[in-house]
Design a protein around this nucleic acid. Sequence first.
DNA 1: TTCAAATATAAACAATTGTTGACTTAAAAT
DNA 2: ATTTTAAGTCAACAATTGTTTATATTTGAA
Lengths: 191, 191
Amino acid sequence: MKVSTRREDFLQTSLELIHEKGFKATTMRDIAERMGFDVSNSYNYIKSKQDILELFLFRTSAEFHNTMDNILACSYTADEKLKQVISAHIQVAAKKPFEVALMVNEWRNLSEPKYNEYVALRNLYEKKMAKLLREGVQQGVFKEMDVKIATALILSSIRWLYDAYANTKKAMNPIELERQIVGLVLEGVLK
Amino acid sequence: MKVSTRREDFLQTSLELIHEKGFKATTMRDIAERMGFDVSNSYNYIKSKQDILELFLFRTSAEFHNTMDNILACSYTADEKLKQVISAHIQVAAKKPFEVALMVNEWRNLSEPKYNEYVALRNLYEKKMAKLLREGVQQGVFKEMDVKIATALILSSIRWLYDAYANTKKAMNPIELERQIVGLVLEGVLK
DNA sequence: TTCAAATATAAACAATTGTTGACTTAAAAT
DNA sequence: ATTTTAAGTCAACAATTGTTTATATTTGAA
């Protein structure tokens, strides 16, 4: 094992710095300084600044898609599937908060060939969620609703989750977090 | 009437450009070019690039706070208040989608004295929402729940709304939008 | 020991960026 | 008619930025 831990360090440092200052505001010199070496050395680990962004964005996106695909392919009922998706989101957010923060905040900074690719992946994920909801409506387990709106709302409602773990002051209990969020999404706030 | 419409034009152009490219990626030269004049002339309308950001951010924030304060001071029940808040968010998002987009996406680009000010306003707004929810729980109209989590979830769930209006392809009906979102937040997706 | 790969430095580049100062011209108010 | 104000141009600045090239040092394997 151990495949150039130096590169991993460099990428992790990049990730944390980008989370702190934003991608555009983070300079290659910032990253190098925190690593303790000169800027030019950074280019032994990465081809360009854009590549840092691409690497994390597409890797984490693939992880979300994989999980979603597995859940969709199960024989669960739609409400069970939705719970699974929420659960998975919480787990990823808890384990890789900086990667998720990057996905939420920095994807707009991709430049043109990759930007379109990424937006397509994003739309695809939205479509998968919409399919899940439509399934539930047809099964009679979800109420009649505008699936497009519900999709946007539910995905948006779990986008903040990384924040509960990226800013380490608290370290929220994932089990309780899941219980609360599932309760709110499935049954709302009314008694 | 008519108070220097030229300045308004400049600010509106800035706003749209920032929405398209992001604040950091939008240069003063970009804005000037779209206005049809030289960069230097921009500084007859604004003191600095940061000032453009501050102006919109604090102005729109104040609008949200005002509305929230008025709703909180009413004699409505908590569930009615929550509906009012959601309704207000939709109206602002429909009328000023670019301003709202700025609030959602660009507040991190504020620099230090103003950044803290803005974060404080943000936290205050969250506290006001939490108060509304706690009220509802005490009145017995909302179920028992972790108010901190519910606050984050609800606010996050309506953050995407500007997107339904900023990208003009559709121009969604605000009445139906409100019906759907209120239904989902209050009662969830289950039948 | 030798040799190649990994790790690092130093210096410089070309481009971009926010901002300023000195002037000019057009429009409005006195 | 004169003067103030609004609107605009031109040239230049200092700083920052991503990236490259050439070169040196360290390290692990042969």
